[in-house]
Amino acid sequence: MKDKLSKEEVYHVANLARISLTDEEVKKYQIQLKQILDDVEKINNVKGYDDDILIACWEENTSLRKDEIGEMLNPKEVLENAPHHSGNYIAVPIVINGGEGA
């Protein structure tokens, strides 16, 4: 078994997590991430469990909320902690490609 991740593997996960890394950090994480991932591999030694999953650690089901309007923030409060804003809007550097998701 190799003892560290490749640089590309480190960059891949850093990219998923939106974290930029210095060369130094990449070197460090090549080893550290590998150590953790090897440890996590122990899950493959676990035998004899069944396939049911439990989302939260208890047995009750979701209780539904009535469709009634509650208190809302005013635009000023929305902007209160936002580092960049313009008018009533929170602002970010221009994004042109349209949403990835919905």
Binding site: R65, L79, N88, Y89
Partner: peptide, 27 residues
Amino acid sequence: KTKTKIFSNSMNGYGEMANSLTNVVDL
């Protein structure tokens, strides 16, 4: 067509003033 949002109780509305139909959950 609901009165409120799916995961919070702020109003589901169209054409209102920007950022006037939100709460901490939506944000």
